Every structure is written in C-alpha cells, then in structure tokens.
Amino acid sequence: MAFNHRFESIEQVADELASARYIADRALATVIFLAHRLQKPIFLEGEPGVGKTEVGIVMARLFDTELIRLQCYEGLDASTALYEWNYPKQLLHIRLQEQQRKGTEEIERAIYGPEFLIKRPLLEAIMSSNEKTPVLLIDEVDRSDEEFEAFLLEVLSDFQITIPEIGTLKARERPMVVVTSNRTRDVHDALKRRCLYHWIDYPSFEKEYTIVTTRLPHIEKNLARQVAHFMQKIRSVDFLKRPGISETLDWASALIEMERKHLDEEVVKETLGCILKYQDDIKRFTEEIWADPEKRVEYLQEV
C-alpha cells in the first residue's frame, strides 16, 4: 500500500488513533496494524453507533489520503457500485461523429473509451491515480443483497474488474478496505474469510468517559461521568434500539449547548430524544424506569 507512512507497531496505531480522537482498544489496534501490514480488508461488525464507520474515516485522515465510501442498501447492484456509461455524452459524440461521416465501427470504438465512464466507488478505488492509495469504506454491507455480496467477493479477491468494451482493469496498489456490518443479517463466511474480523462492542464506562472527554474537551468532567454512567445503565435494558456511542456524543453535545453542568430529572426528560429513537422505547423508559424514584437515583448517580 503506497501510504505516506507505515505503522511500525500496534502501540503506534493506538497512539495515532487517539491523536485523531478515536479511542481504540488494543484488539482493534492490532487488527488495523495487521490489515495494514498484510494488505487485507478489515471487517468490522457491531451494533449501530459504536464507531465502525469512523474507523475508515479516521484511517483516511491518518494517511492523509482520499476516502472513497460505498454506502450499501437493499437493491444495490454492480453498476451502481462499479461504473456506468455516460449515455448523454455518448449520444452527443455519436451525432458529432455522424456529421463527420465516420463509420459505425470507428464510432463504437470511440464512444467506449475511459473518458465516457462514470466511475462509481469501487472503480474509483481500483483506478485511483493519486500518489497515495485511497481508503475504501464499504459501509453497512449487511443491507445489500446476497447477489451483490457475491460480486463484492470477486472484487476484494483480486482488485480487478473486466469491462467488456475496454478490458481488464487492475488496481495499481491495493487500497486499505474497511467493511462494516450492523449484523441485520448474516454476511456470508466467504466474504469474512477475505478479511480480518473484529467485533466492536459497546464501550465500558471508562472507555465511554474517555471518548466523551476526548471528543468534547470542554465538557464538565462530572457531567461526562454522569453521562457515561447513565448510558451504561440504559443499555442494560432490552430496548428496540439501544443507544450507541454516537447517541452518547449527541446527548453530551446537547447538554453542553444547554449549559448544563450535571444531570437532573428535568434535563433527562427534555433530551430523551437524543438517546432513544423509538417512541415505544421512550414510553417504556418513562413508565418503567423514570417513574420509579429509586431507579432515577441509580441513573443520576454521580460516580
């Protein structure tokens, strides 16, 4: 990988991630180190909002290179992810060529050149002409169909694709690839075998507190501890959607904007929408937890 610097140790990975305000445990730092050295994709799995996507974003920032992002969704196909022909430009060129009385074969050769290709994320990563190899982020692959997953398997194997009208295109350098999944469905083992796998779990209290104070350095330390403790408690409840670290940071940012220095019953009720995203969860929290004085004390405990 032609990046502008090389990771020499796992400790260096952890330190550089921390300098980019991403707090990673040693296991994740190890996976990133090995992926960089072995030129293997990283497959990150975990609940929504735990920081999987951010890994790809931070890696591009550390390497000072381009981030190419493919956001997966149901119905995503190869043409959307790889390339398509610029039909309006081709039609215009055909008319110009016909006016010049060019032959059919000559016109066909002309309109199927690289200049008529619209590059989508995967082809962008393969044909990147930048001096620095890009980081390719394939986000939420579990949302795509199994057919696309099979196609992706081929691309990640050789980092080359064949365009019938042009030929085979192969990446000059393998990009660093980060694949993420929220595990809404099982991703095929064959795809995972191509990657180094890592599960990102919800953070511990200590890690969550560190994340909050690192990302929001102006927050009151006592408030940061209360927020981290509150989030640890609320994740112990089997809600439809448990809040991740992204909700923690959103909530903490909201509390800063409200100039709050500590949590109380009123501000929790006012800002509950920063944490819980389903009305059923909000109703359950309000009726089963916040209506109980003892539980309110537990959640608002200063640690």
Score class of each variant (00 low, 15 high):
residue 34 L to A: 03
residue 8 E to R: 12
residue 3 F to M: 12
residue 168 T to R: 14
residue 182 N to E: 04
residue 10 I to V: 12
residue 202 Y to K: 12
residue 35 A to C: 00
residue 46 G to K: 10
residue 286 T to V: 06
residue 228 A to L: 02
residue 100 Q to V: 06
residue 22 Y to G: 06
residue 139 D to V: 14
residue 196 L to M: 09
residue 218 H to W: 09
residue 33 F to H: 01
residue 249 L to Y: 08
residue 201 D to E: 13
residue 125 A to S: 06
residue 79 S to D: 11
residue 41 P to I: 00
residue 48 P to V: 09
residue 85 W to P: 01
residue 211 I to C: 00
residue 180 T to A: 04
residue 138 I to F: 11
residue 298 E to I: 15
residue 37 R to T: 00
residue 160 Q to S: 15
residue 153 L to H: 11
residue 39 Q to V: 03
residue 191 L to E: 00
residue 192 K to L: 11
residue 51 G to V: 00
residue 196 L to T: 03
residue 16 E to D: 14
residue 26 R to N: 12
residue 70 L to W: 04
residue 207 K to C: 07
residue 256 I to L: 10
residue 281 D to L: 07
residue 225 R to L: 10
residue 94 I to R: 04
residue 112 Y to T: 02
residue 31 V to G: 00
residue 251 W to Q: 05
residue 198 H to F: 06
residue 71 Q to A: 10
residue 263 L to G: 09
residue 219 I to M: 01
residue 155 V to H: 03
residue 14 A to K: 13
residue 138 I to V: 14
residue 294 E to L: 14
residue 27 A to N: 11
residue 240 L to G: 11
residue 269 K to Q: 11
residue 64 D to M: 10
residue 110 A to G: 02
residue 182 N to H: 08
residue 263 L to T: 10
residue 121 P to C: 03
residue 216 L to A: 00
residue 229 H to R: 12
residue 90 Q to F: 08
residue 207 K to N: 12
residue 233 K to S: 13
residue 190 A to I: 09
residue 296 R to F: 05
residue 74 E to G: 12
residue 9 S to F: 11
residue 98 E to H: 10
residue 239 F to Y: 06
residue 6 R to F: 11
residue 240 L to K: 14
residue 176 M to W: 04
residue 60 A to Y: 06
residue 291 A to P: 13
residue 147 E to C: 09
residue 284 R to N: 02
residue 148 F to Y: 01
residue 96 L to A: 14
residue 149 E to H: 13
residue 136 L to C: 06
residue 56 G to C: 02
residue 54 E to P: 01
residue 47 E to P: 09
residue 164 P to N: 04
residue 282 I to T: 08
residue 228 A to H: 01
residue 298 E to K: 15
residue 42 I to L: 03
residue 300 L to M: 13
residue 77 D to S: 04
residue 14 A to S: 13
residue 128 S to E: 01
residue 252 A to I: 05
residue 239 F to L: 06
residue 291 A to D: 15
residue 241 K to L: 13
residue 271 T to P: 05
residue 302 E to M: 14
residue 20 A to R: 13
residue 292 D to C: 14
residue 299 Y to K: 10
